[in-house]
């Protein structure tokens, strides 16, 4: 028999390593895309080979922001818009950590937009996953900086007359060194990109277009979650390496997806250390090295001292 009514479903589920199963079921609506992105994130973490104890997740406020509460990692559910500065502080205080920000489009690019652009500018070594559902889900479907022109939102009941951000372009312009976008239908690709982002040194950004069924889909009479996935299936076009100036999204228009940017550049902390080492010289003790790095350095120092003594 290939069906299993498993009494130990929660423990046996391969996600049990990553999720606080005692908090399930979660609060997200039927067909909401956030859960898929969480699974893809978990898969990415698994594949990344990183030590789970050394990954922290920081969320802001919103439906997506609830992710921090469900993921069984060190996790911080902060305030609206402030996940990135919190992650920045954490990363700088404990540079061994891989810090992942997981939040919504409103959180990261409206109220938190200033932090987003500056973390990208600094090439802060964090990974930012943005679930872009084109709306403020948690507060009832208001317009966000990514709501497509003409789309209906509860605060643009006659249609949106503002221009939206194209997030990959924004991130690119600000200096992000890894940028990818997928839709929630591309579960495997999201996972692949998040894995790459986790292993990337520098500011990495993964945007996932996902349905907010209850508000965005319904207000715009776009049907349910399946209808959203069908739209993605028909209109998402993989275009790796595409110039980010060409990836904006019109209302129900084509969605360019893929890995747009991947480049190497010293991170914020690299620069702190390189700069001080240069201007201060040997006396400068490199900040924030990982324990193995420090041990290796101490060993090398001891060895060279021993050699000198002979």
């Amino acid at each position: 028999m290939n069906v299993n009514a498993n009494a130990n479903f929660a423990q046996d589920n391969p996600m049990s390593q990553f999720l606080r199963m005692e908090r399930m079921p979660h609060i997200w609506c039927p067909g909401c895309g956030i859960g898929t992105v969480v699974t893809a994130f978990a898969e990415a973490v698994k594949k990344s080979g990183l030590d789970l104890d050394k990954i922290a997740i920081v969320s802001g406020i919103g439906c997506t922001g609830r992710t921090a509460g469900y993921v069984k990692l060190d996790s911080f559910h902060s305030t609206h818009g402030r996940a990135i500065p919190l992650a920045t502080g954490l990363k700088l205080a404990n540079p061994e950590m891989k810090v992942v920000v997981f939040s919504g489009d409103g959180d990261l690019t409206s109220i938190g937009g200033n932090h987003f652009i500056h973390a990208a500018r600094r090439n802060m070594d964090i990974t930012v996953v943005c679930v872009n559902n084109f709306t403020y889900g948690m507060t009832g479907g208001q317009m966000t900086p990514t709501t497509p022109h003409t789309a209906n939102a509860s605060t643009t009941p006659y249609g949106n007359y503002e221009y939206p951000f194209s997030l990959p372009f924004l991130a690119d312009a600000c200096g992000a060194t890894y940028i990818a976008r997928w839709t929630s239908l591309h579960a495997r690709q999201i996972s692949g990109s998040i894995k790459e982002a986790l292993n990337h040194k520098g500011f990495s950004f993964v945007e996932v277009i996902a349905p907010c069924t209850t508000l965005y889909q319904r207000r715009n009479r776009l049907g349910d979650g399946l209808d959203a996935l069908e739209y993605y299936q028909n209109d998402a076009e993989i275009a790796h390496g595409l110039d980010t100036r060409q990836v904006d999204i019109d209302y129900q228009g084509k969605i360019k997806v893929g890995k747009f940017v991947e480049k190497q550049k010293p991170t914020y902390l690299d620069n702190v250390n390189q700069h001080y080492a240069q201007v201060i010289g040997d006396e400068y003790e490199l900040y924030g090295k990982t324990t193995p790095e420090k041990e290796a350095e101490a060993k090398a120092k001891a060895e060279s001292a021993a050699k000198g003594a002979v």
Binding site: L86, A87, T88, G89, K91, L92, A93, H115, H118
Partner: peptide, 26 residues
């Protein structure tokens, strides 16, 4: 740099105080 500390000039005061929360838990 003399004491092995880190100073970061954040983009605003909201970021500054929030970075402290991350820093403290770090």
């Amino acid at each position: 740099p003399e004491v092995g500390g880190l100073f970061i000039q954040m983009e605003d005061e909201i970021a500054s105080v929030t970075a402290l929360i991350g820093g403290a838990w770090g």
